[in-house]
């Protein structure tokens, strides 16, 4: 479904990704594991079109999307739920969700999608008329995920969905991610909570200093000595 081939990318003169290769198959849950600064967020931002690759190819469903601007990447069915929520703070939760369904494809079915998404997030339904900026961090994260689902993505990318949240909220976020996975959406997830993420992932990549150093099934990576020492603290 999604293939990154020898992708280089960075900001200005700083190269972050040194030729990474990643594939995500339809229906898979894939995670990228790595330390801070390894290039996980840059990888997702490059796929989303926010960072332009300096070399390499990114293909999605057979089409080269490496040079497309972000709004055209979204239109093809790839949605990024960004790190730090990035809601529209002075808009209501309802308008934030409507913005999630901005692409023509999603707009046509917005009413139905809204119902489906709100069934998944009953707490969000209660806050529909509030300004997104007035919600708690955990509530904002739920809105951010709900907003991502509003686009009816084929591939949903999560960037650190549990970052900065209280442990009890982290558990709720993971429950939601698991329920989304259960609906069959293809997922690419970057998450500091490596243990929990590898447990739900079909496959994982280990990213160190902008290079993929290891890849295997989630279960195998969980048992790997290097992964356990470096990322699980065992």
């Amino acid at each position: 479904m999604l293939t990154l081939h020898e992708v280089h990318a960075g900001y200005g003169r700083t190269t972050i990704l040194h030729g990474i290769g990643i594939t995500v198959g339809a229906g898979e849950v894939v995670t990228i594991v790595g330390a801070n600064g390894a290039g996980k967020t840059t990888t997702l931002r490059t796929i989303a079109g926010l960072v332009r690759p300096t070399a390499g190819r990114i293909t999605f469903e057979g089409e080269d999307i490496g040079r497309l601007p972000p709004h055209e990447v979204v239109a093809r069915g790839i949605t990024l739920i960004p790190e730090g929520r990035q809601l529209f703070p002075f808009m209501t939760v309802r308008d934030n969700l409507r913005m999630g369904a901005y692409t023509p494809h999603a707009r046509d079915r917005m009413a139905r999608t809204m119902d489906e998404v709100l069934d998944l997030f009953p707490r969000v339904r209660e806050k529909l008329e509030q300004h997104a900026g007035s919600l708690s961090g955990g509530e904002q994260q739920m809105v951010a995920i709900a907003r991502g689902l509003m686009s009816r993505p084929k591939l949903l990318m999560f960037d650190e969905p549990s970052l900065g949240l209280a442990p009890i909220i982290v558990k709720q976020v993971f429950d939601v991610v698991e329920r989304i996975v259960a609906t069959g959406v293809t997922v690419l997830i970057v998450e500091q909570n490596v243990f929990r993420t590898l447990s739900i992932a079909d496959r994982g990549y280990v990213l160190e200093n902008g290079e993929i150093v290891m890849t295997d099934t989630g279960a195998t990576l969980l048992r790997d000595d290097h992964v356990r020492r470096a990322y699980l603290g065992i």
Binding site: H71, Q86, P89, F90, M91, A106
Partner: peptide, 18 residues
């Protein structure tokens, strides 16, 4: 709405397809 969203968070608006 897209205009307001762009004013409030340009990068996020792009991620919505704006």
């Amino acid at each position: 709405r897209a205009i307001r969203a762009t004013a409030q968070h340009r990068a996020a608006a792009q991620l919505m397809g704006v």
